[in-house]
């Protein structure tokens, strides 16, 4: 039994380091919403604005990304992005010149974490034209949007990672989970048998 233990310790150590410890150490920010695949359909012309509701389940949202397009990078008008809470109070606001928008590009906005559970993103612009600055959205005008949540302490990250890994395991094919774990277990039993066999000089 003692002989196999050191092998099992190595195996468990590898699994722990790679799936629990290391992700908790380096992943300090988790992605929430990840909506992509829309089209440049919402023109950021003066007088027009667009809103989108998002939730903040961890109370620690600290970054959003929006996909925008400035065809041929011609328009240098200002674009305003505001984050409001459910009472309509301004939490964070940003203004970007059109020259900083690609054709197209994701614009990531980092800010100190917001605690409010429900938030609204409001995007508007000062373009004089209806065909020179766009926000990406789907047919229902839902923005192409990514949200990120910060996990400040190592303890938080370990807990979140354990929950994440458990959920991921449950979402995998159960048949594969069983066969995979059974294979590893059987191979360890075989290794134990080999280790316990008497040493034969021949």
């Amino acid at each position: 039994m003692k002989k196999i233990l050191k092998y099992i310790v190595v195996e468990l150590f590898v699994v722990f380091i790679l799936t629990i410890f290391f992700p908790a150490l380096v992943i300090r920010e988790k992605i929430g919403l990840n909506i992509d695949g829309g089209k440049p359909k919402l023109p950021l012309q003066t007088g027009k604005f667009y809103t989108q509701k998002i939730n903040n389940p961890t109370h620690s949202i600290n970054s959003i990304s929006l996909q925008l397009k400035n065809p041929q990078i011609k328009d240098n008008s200002l674009i305003y992005i505001e984050i409001l809470d459910e009472a309509g109070e301004l939490q964070r606001d940003f203004s970007i010149y059109g020259a900083n928008i690609g054709d197209p590009s994701w614009i990531k906005l980092d800010f100190s974490p917001i605690e409010s559970t429900n938030l609204v993103i409001r995007v508007s612009g000062e373009s004089q034209f209806d065909n020179s600055l766009y926000l990406f959205a789907d047919q229902n005008n839902n923005f192409d949007l990514k949200t990120y949540y910060v996990l400040p302490t190592f303890k938080d990250r370990i807990i979140q990672n354990l929950i994440y890994q458990t959920n991921l395991f449950k979402r995998r094919s159960m048949w594969h989970n069983i066969v995979y774990l059974a294979s590893i277990f059987s191979l360890n039993l075989y290794l134990k048998k080999l280790l316990n066999e008497p040493f034969n000089k021949s």
């Binding site: 190595v10 590898v14 699994v15 799936t19 590893i184 191979l187 290794l191 040493f199």
Partner: peptide, 22 residues
Amino acid sequence: KKRIKELFVFALILRLILAPLF
């Protein structure tokens, strides 16, 4: 040899653990 067999079995286990993670 028994010792070589042990090495191969342990190497196989490590590979089965590591290969899917990347």
